[in-house]
Design a protein around this nucleic acid. Structure first.
Lengths: 389, 389
DNA sequence: CTGTTAGCGCTTTCAC
DNA sequence: GTGAAAGCGCTAACAG
């Protein structure tokens, strides 16, 4: 019965004495049953056994199974997989053969547990997976992390502060190695302890509140200021700024850049041109149409994000040429419709987040590092028109 | 020294005898050191100790730590966290208090290992994180999975077959509970074994090759056919189809739908109107300009995906009204520029993938299930123009 | 309702 | 260069 012709997985079953109380005891008993039948030839498997076989699949081969088949100790097999060089070429080959035959895959769960209980995943908590900004950041992160053998786990808060706590909690329970976070809750002090416990936190797009964490942000203020300066240089003075919602950190910064640049050009009071929170239920399109209906309408509009830019296109049509406009954030087809924007490399931003995570893992101590990713003006026609005479 | 006033984490240190050979022995020794200093008051921590404390952070509290503080056994604490009701309210409160004080978080890694070595994550292997289609699918999946307490791990193949193997391998090593996959390799038979080992596979957007797996696809063929039928009903006969690359499953299907609908309208030979692989180095815009340069140019164009639609806008401008056109895939601002499309609910598709995963986890046996998500024509102007007389 | 014991699959320490 | 024993944090089985 314990003949050498039994399949490797069946051999593992013979080790039953060594693992008498596995939680999946039923599985194992069943496995032995079906394997025994199988050793009589496939035709001997009854219907019940076949159904059971499908319902309770065979176990994966473990390191011990490989060791047994290769005739070495578990530790030696382990050495082959943790990059140790202290294995003779001959032994190594035997082990690799055995592993191949058993389709062995090291269990990262077990390895992580043994290795200080920390997984190889980095959590990224973002607002919304349908927002192209967050997702391109995630793409950059993933590329950079995978080069270091780390994976990325994504969680969405749907811009709900309570969800931030829930998702972060799940990730911490999974023992992510680090946490990247687009903060939405009012307060991230609850993460201070985790940082102290060795889980670095890097915030993305917005700074953390009440938490000493690294951050990777855009240069929101300078980006908008540059756009407005280009317009004032062309002679524009009646420049509007459209953004919603106004309270978000990035939007506050962009508004500040707008005001700053207009003040430089001698325009002190911009309040008449600011549309910061859209009329409830009507949205940004209404704000923009309202601006154009003014007695003295603006000669240029700066939008605070890509949603506002889309609203502008919807409100005024794709190629309105009696008005100058520049949008924060690049977007698909902006080139095709000649929409000038304040752009930045979103994927690179994600890579930078990953690099901060890696650097922080290498050096958990030290003051928080804050990175501002640069923006640049992309002229495409809509932002280079002087005001009408 | 073992006074009750020592912090809980320091108490854990007193259990040193119980875990004498932890792999992080250095950490623990260090922890004891700093804790002892700390018990003399924070001011007594020397510079070296403080640096060391930061470099080698204290350990997380474990279930055993909580049990010790609450004066119960580990198993009882465990019962509180696995949803057992067999704990007296009083004990439960004591445990919860202790857990709170120690900031205890159950270690999902350990739990997963004990639970048959399967994690709570579902892997989704997609082509490219910057592609909005895949990402919206991921968004839908994530929403549905999180309702069942599962998380999602994302991996990108960058459309490289070798990467598919690598990413899938990583996920399997992490013992994902199931695998969703946009296949890119020629052959997925390597996953047959994993399925047999209890890891369900659901393919997305394209069927698997040589693997019995569930799939969630779009109704590509009918989607294109519907668009073409609407055009033939308006009188169009010279209808072009632009798509690249031609070999992809979805594109093959969409082409078939195009041909089918034109055949229904009496047009047998469509080869002159098909632009299936763009001129190398020049892209889809060149294909489209080439079509319009023909002696008898098409009166309508159907694009095979959103990239081709974008190329059409770039080649012909955003509001070309002497030509009818319809695109497969909806895209941002398509409404603003009056671009009619064959649309579908991408997020819902993702939810459906998640539901297939969950169903398959419940019932690993049974024949593969194939789902086709419906598409629908969204009229926005560009597709409802009759041909010029 | 609660505790004891053993072990998931792996890696660590230490001995050979 | 290799092996034996122990245990990471948690939970299943089985007592009491």
């Amino acid at each position: 019965m314990t003949s050498p012709h039994l399949s490797p997985l069946c051999r593992a079953v013979d080790g039953h004495v060594q693992r008498p109380r596995a939680p999946t005891g039923a599985h194992r008993a069943l496995k032995r049953f079906t394997c025994q039948l199988a050793s009589r030839g496939p035709g001997a498997i009854g219907v019940a056994a076949r159904v059971a076989l499908v319902h309770k699949p065979p176990q994966r081969a473990t390191l011990a199974d490989v060791a047994r088949l290769a005739g070495v100790s578990a530790k030696t097999v382990s050495r082959v997989y943790d990059g140790s060089t202290n294995v003779s070429p001959d032994t190594r080959r035997r082990i690799e053969d055995a592993a191949e035959r058993l389709h062995f895959r090291p269990n990262l769960l077990a390895r992580s547990l043994r290795h200080g209980g920390v997984s190889t995943a980095v959590g990224f908590v973002l607002g919304d997976l349908t927002n192209p900004f967050y997702v391109k950041v995630a793409a950059g992160m993933e590329r950079e992390l995978s080069r270091s053998g780390l994976t990325m786990v994504l969680g969405a808060t749907e811009d709900d502060p309570a969800e931030e706590h829930r998702v972060v909690g799940t990730f911490l329970a999974q023992r992510v190695r680090a946490l990247a976070l687009v903060p939405i809750a009012d307060d991230q002090s609850y993460l201070e302890r985790e940082r102290g416990l060795g889980t670095p936190v890097v915030t993305v797009d917005r700074p953390a509140r009440n938490l000493l964490a690294d951050s990777v942000l855009l240069d929101d203020r300078e980006g908008t200021a540059e756009a407005v300066r280009a317009l004032t240089r062309l002679g524009h003075r009646r420049i509007a700024f459209v953004c919603d919602p106004a309270h978000l950190y990035t939007h506050v910064e962009r508004l500040a850049g707008y005001r700053e640049a207009l003040r430089e050009a001698g325009v002190e009071d911009t309040s008449a041109w600011e549309r910061l929170d859209d009329p409830p239920g009507q949205g940004t399109e209404a704000s923009i149409l309202g601006l154009m209906d003014m007695a003295e309408p603006p000669t240029a509009i700066v939008t605070g994000n890509n949603k506002a830019s889309a609203a502008l296109v919807r409100a005024l049509g794709p190629m309105r040429d009696d008005l100058a406009y520049v949008g924060f954030d690049d977007f698909d087809l902006a080139d095709a419709i000649g929409f000038s924007v304040v752009a930045y490399d979103t994927v690179e931003l994600g890579r930078m987040v990953a690099r901060r995570v890696l650097a922080r893992l290498d050096d958990p101590a030290g003051a928080p590092v804050h990175v501002r990713m640069p923006t640049h003006l992309v002229p495409r026609g809509s932002g280079e028109r002087p005001p009408p005479k």
